[in-house]
Design a protein around this nucleic acid. Structure first.
Lengths: 157, 157
DNA sequence: TTCCAGCCCGAATTATATGCGGATCATGAA
DNA sequence: TTCATGATCCGCATATAATTCGGGCTGGAA
């Protein structure tokens, strides 16, 4: 379990993963050496899974975001697993969720423009036999909340 | 625009935002001092927006993920803006997308369990006057692809 | 009480980050 | 072609930071 110091470390690293160990230690009131051990422990325990740059997709030539809701038929492991592997290999794919409900997957994609999206849909999805239904949701704006508060012992909810 | 060295730097920082400047420089074949300047420039130009730890939500007591598709009525700025602000303040909210289509918003939430989700839906959403329709999609699995390849000059697509 | 595990700290040692002067190179004007 | 200009890069010197390690403190078990 996480104690309050772990929670503080996690929060700071969610806010700024490139903070120096020294500054991090100072923010959570630990000596740098101790802080370093804490961070290592959090990584070892799988709490901290990685550190990633948040990049402006427009600068990468992919300013348009969309969700693609996909229904797969048949919804069996033999079909689902390859579909997941395939989708994750598409350069346009940003995130993939396997969900419950009428739709089976929600694929978040980043593309250059509408024409690119159209090509992706036609060539990348509807052309596949297992894809039974598609619905596209253009994304006007998207906000990711990088910091998530712990729920339970250290949350008050 | 990004040249190929910028693209390489961005890719490395997407993979590991806590890489040392020295190691990063070595990976992209630059001197550390030059690499530092490149990274600063990428931040200044808004290409690198931030660096964030990827945290295991289960460790934070929120192992259950869901999308909540929300329809708002009326869909006017006077109603939409406060709804966005409200939703982003909920501790359960992880991401919020304003989308085109029958649904107006897709809210990604992280909760402790089904009961928590139910409470969130009833007290946090359906109780609000502007919320006309809700549909919840439990997320069985979710994969985020941290690295996105540039599209255009440096992509081959 | 004694031992031990779990945490924490500070000092010393390495390693890294950063500021700067100056070299190199592509470009475009004369 | 020649020269000025700006952009980019590098290496070195110095300031900072990361990391290791020995040891102290505390609470619980025996």
């Amino acid at each position: 379990m996480l104690d309050s110091v772990d929670a503080a470390i996690v929060r700071e690293l969610q806010n700024d993963a490139r903070i120096s160990n020294k500054d991090l230690a100072s923010k959570v009131n630990l000596a740098p050496s101790t802080c370093l051990e804490r961070v290592r422990s959090l990584k070892a325990r799988g709490v901290l899974r990685g550190f990633h740059a948040d990049v402006d997709l427009g600068s990468l030539g992919r300013p348009l975001l969309a969700f693609i809701a996909v229904r797969i038929r048949p919804h069996t492991r033999e079909v689902v697993d390859p579909f997941i592997a395939y989708t994750l290999k598409l350069p346009e794919t940003v995130a993939l969720s396997h969900v419950a409900g009428p739709d089976d997957f929600l694929v978040q994609v980043a593309v250059r423009d509408a024409a690119h999206l159209q090509r992706l849909l036609l060539d990348g999805f509807t052309s596949r036999r297992e894809v039974a239904h598609l619905q596209t949701h253009l994304i006007f704006s998207h906000v990711h909340k990088w910091a998530t508060e712990p729920y339970g012992p250290y949350g008050l909810e």
